[in-house]
């Protein structure tokens, strides 16, 4: 196990380096350097050349890459081209926590509601509650989160004429709790469905298992059986889902953030992408890459600890 972890960690560095290299190459393949300031009505080619020289964009590519990596290792991601002279680090320090916070809310929402739905469905197997929650789950699970977001907004607009749009959109800073509700639901709906389905089948399996039959045979109260024996065992695999869900949700909120106008990293990234803000793009890819890699490792380790069938 330890060897496995060490091995995985050792792979981090080359993997991350490869990610950055790949992004770097792809960016260099696209025309333009992203150095032109947004809104610049007039700019001479000579000026562009000078700006590029200023940022070392005229150097040979390997040298540029070397400089970038050397700086990045020291935590210096350079200035954002689009928001010069602000540094990429300062922008990420401001926006990434917002994305993470939204991801955390969505994960909590998904786990709490998903587990509840799943358990209710399982203990009422084939009853109306089961039917409703399974249907809800498959609906949630099929809809991409940005479609979900717009559906929620439309619902609010129809139900609350005059006020719906306001509640659906974040106007600026996230000042009140209402601003978080719809994005959390939109982002959390799909993982909620996954958790509900897992929980349901896991609980159903547990209910049918021998130890539960034994517990029942011993004459224990049904509620006690469910809580003590069924849930305890059935929820362990579900717990392992939380990690990857958080990873996916924390890094996967581009469109939800765009739809609800949340000043997180998502819309920022989409914008830096179109503006070809190279330092920004590289840093975002790097951070997402590291975040995903760490979360995946964590999940696998957890999974190995919990499920004895897995051997590394």
């Amino acid at each position: 196990m330890l060897r496995y972890i060490a091995n995985r960690v050792a792979w981090f560095v080359p993997t991350i380096l490869a990610i950055v290299a790949l992004t770097f190459i792809l960016l260099k393949l696209t025309p333009g350097t992203g150095i032109i300031p947004a809104g610049a009505q007039q700019i001479s080619p000579d000026m562009i050349r000078r700006l590029e020289a200023q940022y070392g964009l005229d150097k040979p590519l390997p040298e540029q890459f070397g400089i970038y990596v050397a700086n990045a290792v020291r935590g210096d991601f350079g200035e954002s081209f689009a928001f010069r002279p602000q540094t990429v680090s300062s922008i990420i320090a401001r926006t990434f926590p917002i994305s993470l916070r939204l991801g955390a809310y969505a994960t909590v929402f998904a786990v709490v509601v998903g587990v509840t739905l799943g358990v209710l469905a399982a203990v009422n197997q084939n009853g109306p509650l089961d039917y409703v929650s399974v249907t809800a789950a498959i609906l949630f699970y099929s809809l991409p989160n940005f479609v979900m977001g717009f559906l929620l907004i439309l619902l609010f607009v129809v139900l609350l004429p005059g006020r719906g749009v306001d509640l659906g959109f974040n106007i600026g800073g996230l000042e009140s709790w209402q601003d978080w509700v719809l994005p959390t639901v939109a982002l959390g709906a799909a993982p909620l469905a996954t958790i509900a389905r897992y929980t349901r089948s896991s609980v159903v399996e547990a209910i049918r298992s021998d130890y539960v039959r034994t517990a029942r045979a011993k004459g224990l109260m049904e509620r006690r059986v469910i809580v003590r024996h069924v849930l305890k065992n059935a929820l362990i695999p579900v717990i392992t889902l939380v990690g990857p869900i958080f990873a996916a949700v924390g890094t996967g909120s581009f469109f939800v953030e765009k739809v609800f106008n949340i000043p997180g990293m998502g819309p920022f990234f989409v914008d830096s992408m179109t503006a070809k803000d190279q330092p920004m793009i590289l840093a975002v890819v790097l951070i997402y890459g590291i975040f995903l890699a760490v979360m995946n490792l964590l999940v696998d380790v957890l999974y190995g600890l919990i499920d004895p069938r897995i051997r590394y």
Partner: peptide, 10 residues
């Protein structure tokens, strides 16, 4: 195994 629901963005 976690499927598209979580990695839906991807």
């Amino acid at each position: 195994r976690l499927d598209g629901a979580t990695a839906r963005e991807a």
